[in-house]
Write a protein that binds this DNA or RNA. Structure first.
Lengths: 195, 195
DNA sequence: CAAGATAATTGACCGTGGTCAATAGTGTAA
DNA sequence: TTACACTATTGACCACGGTCAATTATCTTG
């Protein structure tokens, strides 16, 4: 089914990705232009679209790689024992996700595998996140009356909520930490005996 | 500061909106093209952008109006006394929001007031939602250990989560009701004595 | 009403993502 | 090496959102 790709193909694709990464490193994701990529890479425009379905497919790959690196770092650190630590572990990931409005939008759009298409890099990292959260929740002092998988999905939902708040004029740019702590305290704390 | 708008202006804007609504009614939001709108309305393209900052500003208005109507219906119905009823009240709103992938994306992008710009129609309806949820939560049999405002924002976060899931190939098109019930049960239920 | 000021409208033009029929390159078998 | 099938590349072209200097309509004031 899948033919062996030619050496030339792999070189071209690698060059496109390398050039794109370079442009992003210099000017950010939002500033990336397909025309710039192909011009610097020295190929025609059509070549780009022979390698990537559309511009977003390249973005999915670039942003997905960065998300993967953030999750690697999350996993490398010791698992959080309590809520404050969990928030600490999350902040770097959420900081990258909100580094640009454009990046956040792309991530939201591709965080679920697009229907009937293959699952993309960003969507894969969202699956990874859930796995990591489940591990954290099972290993820490959190509520047990709800399955860890549901709790993990809730953590993701609140993370998105907090990130969206960051781009909101009303609840303007106050940090990620405080609102996330508030939500997760209410979501993850074991039922209090008194209160 | 604000000049009185000319009669002509109001007519032109009304015509643009009417034509756009008609196109949306026929072919959906995604199919709307600015060029079609101006062509049918009988004005030049530049005129459109003298009335709306960009295409999204028109979308914000059209979608915002629909959201407002859904919220009106939500408010008109008797407030929910329990979780199942709350989910019932929410489903029509969420169904509209997920009627098109494109609509959902626009809503997400504009659900928070865009930084430093005026608050838009969609963002306003998200504020309304919170108010409605607060009222529901205060009037029903839900947990009291967390401020109603926080609980309301959580309801919104879970609603977004459930809608996003709908467009996800993995957890494919299963309804809104079940996952939403699961999340909200864990989020809103008063702490159980046993279990 | 005339003249000037302000606001609305026009449409040629641009930027940029994306398409596709034609062409060139690559691997393979005789 | 030649012939052939298949793959990769090309670049002119299109779609569509958005811009702006020039033009036209409307309002105001004497």
């Amino acid at each position: 089914m899948a033919r062996t790709p030619q050496k030339r193909t792999l070189e071209t694709r690698a060059r496109l990705v390398a050039v794109a990464q370079d442009i992003v490193a210099r000017n950010g994701f939002e500033a990336l232009r397909v025309e710039d990529v192909v011009q610097v890479a020295g190929v025609a425009k059509g070549t780009f679209f022979a390698h990537f379905r559309d511009k977003d497919a390249l973005m999915d790959r670039l942003i997905g790689a960065r998300l993967d690196a953030e999750i690697d770092a999350m996993v490398a650190a010791p698992p959080p024992r309590d809520l404050a630590q969990m928030v600490d572990r999350l902040v770097p990931l959420l900081t990258f996700m909100t580094s640009e409005r454009y990046v956040f939008d792309v991530i939201l759009r591709y965080s679920g595998a697009a229907a009937r298409e293959e699952i993309g890099a960003i969507a894969t990292t969202f699956g990874r996140q859930i796995e990591v959260f489940i591990g954290w929740i099972e290993g820490g002092d959190f509520r047990r009356d709800v399955p860890a998988a549901i709790l993990a999905e809730g953590v993701q939902a609140f993370a998105v909520q907090v990130m969206a708040l960051r781009f909101c004029a009303l609840h303007g740019g106050n940090g990620l930490r405080d609102p996330l702590s508030t939500y997760l305290a209410a979501w993850l704390s074991p039922p209090q005996p008194s209160a």
